[in-house]
Design a protein around this nucleic acid. Structure first.
Lengths: 211, 211
DNA sequence: TCGTGTGAATCACTTCACAGCT
DNA sequence: AGCTGTGAAGTGATTCACACGA
C-alpha cells in the first residue's frame, strides 16, 4: 500500500505544510495555492508543488488545493493518523520537560511510559505516569503497545538504553543524547542534537564578522 | 579570515567529530584514522576525509590525524571557541529544562538571561537567573552581551518574540516553537521541530508494515 | 488567465578510486 | 604498506520553465 518514494527532505516539509493547512482550515479557508502555502511554511512554490505531487494530483489548475483534502492525504501518507504511543527513558530536566509537553499528545504521539535507572526517581509520578525501572521496560512496552522510544539520558547511558528499547521491540527511536548509537538496520534512530544546533549558529555568527 | 566554503552538511558533522575527538583525546589517544573517526561518529571514511579537508590538510599519510590538532582546528572554524552567551525566551516546561541543561554551558553557549511575558513567571529565579519581562530584553542583551536567542514560547508568540530579539540586536536564533518565523536575511534562524521528528519516525514505522 | 504538474537543468552532497606522501 | 587528499563520477534534491486543464 502507498509505496511512493518520498524523499526525506520532502517528508519533513510535508509535516510543516500539514500544520499550516490545519490552521488555514480552522480559520475557514477552503483552498490554497502553492504560493500561499509556501509563504506560510517558509518554503517556495516549486518545492510545495513538487512535494505535493508525491502524494498524487490533488490540486486544481487555476485554483489551488483544497485544504481539507490535502490534510487528509498528507495524514494518510504520514502513517494513517493512528496514534503511536511512546515511552521516554531518562527522567532528567529534558525528560521531565518533554513528558509534560502537550504537543506530542496533540500530534498523535502520546507518552505512555516513563523509565529511569536512578532509584530516587523510579516510583515518582509525573503527569499521571509512574516512573519504572529500566528492567521493567519490556513489560511496559508490552502493556502500553508503545512503538516509539525517546532517549533523554546522558550520553554515557544512551547506547545501553537503546539496546534495551530494541530488545523490547521498539523500532523507532528519537535520541536526544549527544552521541551516535549503533543499531541494526531495521531500527530507525533520529538524533536531535542541541549542542550541534548551537555550534552551527555560532559558526554563522562568527562568519558574519568577516563579510 | 578563514573564508572556506564549508557545506552545511559537513559543518554539522564537524561538531560530531569534535565531540568524538575530545573523548579520544581525554582517554589519551594521540592519533586517529578517518576510518576510526567515522566508526565512532556514525559517518564513513570518505566523508570524514572530505569534511576534514575543508579545514586544510592536517592529516599525515600513512598515519592519520592528531587528535589535539584536529580539535583545535575544528574549534577555530566553528567560531574561535570564544563563548557565545544566549538569552532564552519562553519559560514553560521546555524553557525551564533547557535553562538548566549543563550541556550548553559546557559547549560554550551559557544561558545568561531568561525572559517571559507571564507576570506570574517574571521575577522567578531559576538556576540563579531572574526571569525578566519581554520589554527588558534589549537592556538584558546589552548588559549580558548575549549573541544567541533561544525561543521556547508557544507557536502563537514566536513571531513577536523573534522580532523583539532582532530588534535587540540578536542575529542567531534557535526556534523551538512549531512555526516558521519571518526574519530579514542577515538573521539566521534554526528550527528544532520535535513534532516533525516524531512524524518522520511515525512515517517509517508505518512503512515498515508494508515491506 | 491562473495555477498545477512535471520533464529538464542546475546545484549540492556523497561515494569512488587512486595518485602521492610517510 | 597504510592512509590522506582530491579530482571525477554518481546520486539526490532544488529550481526552472512551460504545457495543459479549469
Amino acid at each position: 500500500m502507498s509505496n511512493l518514494n518520498l524523499p526525506e527532505a520532502a517528508l519533513s516539509r510535508l509535516t510543516v505544510y500539514q500544520r499550516a493547512l490545519v490552521e488555514l482550515s480552522d480559520s475557514g479557508i477552503k483552498t490554497v495555492s502553492s504560493r500561499e502555502l509556501a509563504e506560510i511554511s517558509g518554503s517556495n512554490e516549486s518545492k510545495v508543488r513538487k512535494d505535493l505531487s508525491y502524494l498524487g494530483s490533488y490540486g486544481t489548475r487555476g485554483v489551488g488545493y483544497e485544504t481539507e483534502r490535502l490534510i487528509k492525504e498528507i495524514g494518510v501518507v504520514l502513517g494513517g493518523s493512528q496514534p503511536k504511543p511512546a515511552v521516554l527513558v531518562g527522567i532528567g530536566n529534558l525528560g521531565r520537560a518533554l513528558s509534560q509537553y502537550e504537543g506530542f499528545q496533540v500530534s498523535g504521539f502520546p507518552i505512555v511510559g516513563l523509565v529511569d535507572i536512578d532509584p530516587d526517581v523510579v516510583g515518582e509520578t509525573i503527569n499521571g505516569l509512574t516512573v519504572k525501572n529500566l528492567d521493567q521496560l519490556e513489560e511496559l512496552v508490552f502493556q502500553t503497545s508503545a512503538v516509539l522510544g525517546i532517549v533523554t539520558t546522558p550520553a554515557i547511558a544512551a547506547q545501553e538504553v537503546v539496546d534495551c528499547l530494541v530488545e523490547a521491540g521498539i523500532r523507532s527511536i528519537l535520541n536526544f543524547a549527544p552521541v551516535v548509537v549503533d543499531v541494526v538496520d531495521e531500527v530507525e534512530v533520529r538524533r536531535v542534537d542541541l549542542a550541534t544546533e548551537f555550534q552551527i549558529l555560532g559558526y554563522y555568527d562568527h562568519l558574519r564578522k568577516f563579510d
